[in-house]
């Protein structure tokens, strides 16, 4: 495993897997996910592929604990995260970082954006003291510098978020998710709007994170990207997980005929 960067916290609990067990979910009458079971380990990259509207984002939002599933369990190791107290769930939730399709940056400087998760993890007294200190000068935050360095934006800390290009903004969003030192990273189509250069930077940061021991789950409809960066691939179709396996096996010899058709670019609705 690569050397632990400065922004990784040694104080966090060390969950090794995050799992969905027989999870079904939906909105009003519509079922989006049906009986999905999936486990992600730290130190691996899992790509979830499937056509648009097939439930990839919903699956990631369930993993990020935005809401409880209609049925089934979401667990860290063996702990059911929706049967523990809200405080315990918050602690576990803070082991997860998430990057969305849009950067969703706050109207603040790059440094303030990237330090946001770190500040949330401090007590109110510390937060207020740091807020007051920031009025005078920006105190150095090694974890922020390290996270920005990972996405190649170490010199952009003082820039306003609004002045960034789309690619730079998404890289800052990645650094923001990375800075608090999560155990798992959830990436929802993080490069779908980016040019090849920014895509390459994000993919390199994903590889660095995986090498550092993070579990990475990336939802993508870019087959080539999944093939490039994933250790395993899960194929989601109409809310059902039809196949999970090693990347090479999925792309060369899938068990399910629909997987083969999807990889070949055929319409499988």
């Amino acid at each position: 495993m690569a050397q632990r960067p400065a922004f990784r916290s040694s104080q966090q609990s060390q969950s090794t897997t995050i799992s969905l067990s027989n999870v079904s979910h939906g909105f009003e009458e519509r079922t989006v996910l049906e009986n999905v079971s999936l486990t992600v380990e730290r130190g691996e990259t899992l790509a979830i592929i499937g056509p648009s509207g097939t439930g990839k984002t919903t699956l990631l939002r369930l993993l990020a604990l935005f809401e409880p599933p209609r049925s089934g369990r979401i667990t860290f190791d063996s702990t059911d995260l929706w049967s523990v107290s809200a405080d315990d769930r918050l602690t576990e939730r803070r082991q997860i970082g998430m990057v969305f399709q849009s950067p969703n940056l706050f109207s603040a400087s790059v440094r303030q954006n990237v330090s946001y998760g770190l500040r949330l993890r401090q007590g109110w007294r510390t937060r207020l003291r740091q807020w007051a200190a920031r009025l005078v000068r920006q105190p150095p935050m090694p974890a922020v510098e390290a996270a920005l360095g990972t996405v190649g934006l170490a010199d952009a800390a003082n820039r306003p978020a609004g002045s960034l290009s789309g690619g730079e903004a998404q890289r800052v969003a990645f650094a923001r998710a990375l800075a608090p030192g999560p155990e798992f990273l959830l990436l929802d189509e993080p490069t779908s709007d980016l040019d090849p250069r920014n895509t390459a930077v994000i993919e390199e940061a994903i590889e660095t994170s995986r090498a550092d021991g993070l579990g990475v789950v990336i939802a993508t409809h870019d087959m080539q990207q999944a093939e490039r960066i994933a250790d395993r691939v899960a194929v989601l179709l109409d809310g059902r997980l039809i196949e999970v396996g090693a990347t090479e096996a999925i792309f060369t010899d899938p068990d399910d005929r629909r997987t083969q058709r999807f990889i070949n670019g055929e319409l499988i609705y």
């Binding site: 990020a64 935005f66 706050f106 923001r176 998710a177 608090p180």
Partner: peptide, 22 residues
């Protein structure tokens, strides 16, 4: 999306409300 980001970064309901106010 901004409120989702605040929540996904480990924010409580109060943190999300403060981010929204900001």
């Amino acid at each position: 999306g901004l409120r989702d980001a605040a929540y996904a970064m480990g924010g409580t309901r109060l943190d999300v409300a403060l981010a929204t106010i900001s």
